[in-house]
Design a binder for these strands. Sequence first.
DNA 1: GACATGACTATCTAGACAGCATGTC
DNA 2: CTAGATAGTCATGTC
Length: 786
Amino acid sequence: MSPAPRRDGPRDLSPQSESGVPGFQPASVHRGEPFSKTPPARRTGASLLPGPATPDPSARVPLEGFPLHPRVVEILRETGIRELYPPQAEALAPVLAGKSLLLACPTSSGKSLVAYMALVHAALEGRRGVYIVPLRALASEKYQDLEPFRRLGLKIGLTMGERDLSSEELEGIDILVSTSEKVDSLLRHRNPWMDRVGVVVADEVHLLRDPGRGPTLEVSLTRLRRRQRGLQVVALSATVGNSQDLARWLSAVHVASAFRPVPLHPGVFREGVLSFLDGSEKPQPSRGTAVEQLVHGALDEGGQALVFVNSRRSTVSVASALSRGVGARLSEGSRAALQEVLSDLDRVGEEETESVRQLRSLVPHGVAFHNASLTNPERAVVERAFREGKLRCLVATTTLAMGLNLPARRVIVRDTTRYDEALGSPVALPAMEVQQMLGRAGRPRYDPYGEAVLIARDLSEEEELRERYLTAPPENVESRLASVAVLRTHVLALVASGEVRSWEELEDFLRSTYYGQEESIEALGAHLRAARAFLETNGLLRGGEPLRATDFGHLTSDLYLDPVSAVLLRRALSRASPSTPPIAYLATLASTPDLAPLYLRAGEEADMTARYAGLAPALLLKPEEDELLPDFDSFLGTLKTASLLEAWLDDRRTLVEITGTFHIGAGDLRTRVERAEWLLSAMAELARRERRGVARALDLLSLRVRYGIREELSELVLLRGIGRVRSRLLYDAGWRDVATLAKADLPAVSGVLGSPALAEGVLDQARSYHHPSRAVRLPPADRGEA
DNA sequence: GACATGACTATCTAGACAGCATGTC
DNA sequence: CTAGATAGTCATGTC
């Protein structure tokens, strides 16, 4: 959806040419013995404590010492890389020898370069490679970083989200950059390209511990490794407690290091004084809150500041509290630069959003906020402005810590707790997460050092923060495979794609997962039986052996649906008729686990209960009748989601009005809409097999959800460049279908759309438009547009 | 009289990945 | 069962 944000490229990986780089720890290299019986060491990873300050000029290793292709060295030189950091050098040697590697070190210490070299080196030897990343934004970034290597004749591919590569396109690809779910999908579809992969890079592999998405990566890596003995795996991890365990699982050389290209000064702020771990202290400007003092202090020293808070509301309020002081510290030149940011913001979307309104009042002061209520293009504008130094201060939620590396001289983590809904109270953040945020301190090439600051109210809190987050190593990475929901999905996928054909093969597979290394798979027994019972009872798997998926099971796995979602969609379809109203379908989607429900605010419960009473007769699924549905209270939240989507279908309602009514951000609406559109097309696909009469209605609804339009606009919207806003303009100007529009003259259309170039393009399309014989079918060209 | 300040209270709480298969009016 | 920030409301204080 969003254009890939511009990045600095691999140059960031180059050692700083100016100042000496003090304070790195020599990399500890450990040849991980495959399948060794020695018990794994627990939580031995480095903390944020800087290593002994031993500036060693010989630490940087010239590229010439490595068996790299001369033209690779040449390309690296052109991007500014002549030498390697110590951990890069430690890691590169085994990688170029074809060995697997687990590299655990801090953000921005140059892990990616090692991965790029592994992929390029292998590709030049004729071995295909995949670069697996957890986020779309990272996929775009890596893809762009690999761009220069095309000159070696290598074909680089990118696949994520709706962005598919045809099998012909894929065939010529040497290096594929992909999100982990997309890799999983390629494996499920038994894509033949995957058969000849010789090297796999797993970025941010510590995300294996994420309960939602970790298992997908774990299963994919297991599948790839089982498929090919001797597959080279290059796993990149943040600093974690037990990276040796991961290395052992992957039979990989283990390289761990606390090295950072820019030294990090961790510290705690209390009562006006910033005390660093090394014992030094820095008084801060005395006015305002702790965050204000710290931000103003950083700015006065010429750095940028990044503040992490634990709620979206706080990102806005803290940014606004900071705006006066930060604005007062701006130079004339930077004021002018901020005007450019303002105009970037105006170009970010056809429809105004609440976030843009708020940003407009903050940006002139050199401050902005960043959270998931922003749309992707909005985030990209903010990120770029901060990276270019135009914004002096950014207040963000974890969006920023998870995604692109956006470093700043001083990082301030204001909140170290997060509200846990299940618990009903705040819980302390894991050290890994806090260190991930703190680790963003220090911009390579711009900052001589980085300052990572926590805030304490009193002495005891200060000690607690130091102990928990600064001096202790981060948590261990543990597998999250042991869950019925996870096994339901992956057992189905493994069976449907033919990876396992018997109970025994499944157990064998599970034994070769990371879970299987760390735990006895006997412990999975109860989960497995429950998962299997669900899949068999609901007609996704046939009973008995050999294990086989039904047609429905195959379709579910291929569509990448959660099995529970698939069952719910099918149940709903069996009760649907041509007169089923859209809200009934929308409520069905919203009650599947594939669409996250909205939070129900105080007072909305009554509204939704009333809405439920009115809608109940029309609903396809009712919570009191369906054991797979959430309980009644949660169902009201899903009804709110359905109501949101219904509001979106009325293009006469503005974005600001809709998001205001439902108390959400435009970014939240976007993600719901994307998911809903996809679920609807999956439902239409099911309908084509089981309920033909409603398939067409679902296709239409899917199109309407995609664009957020009333039915009357569903034809105009098929023209490229025409969406929710413009189709309404055209329609209200009297061009209600493509045929009528084709007869319009350019100046008139241009006047309505406000752009001659756009009008011309649209008229060209309209004049060559062929009416589809079917009601609604998206032209292939219109799909897959990012 | 306009507005600043403070006390008290009700309300709310991070993030983001994934698409089959062409056989019909 | 456990918290804490924020926004809104209302009262009081200040020029």
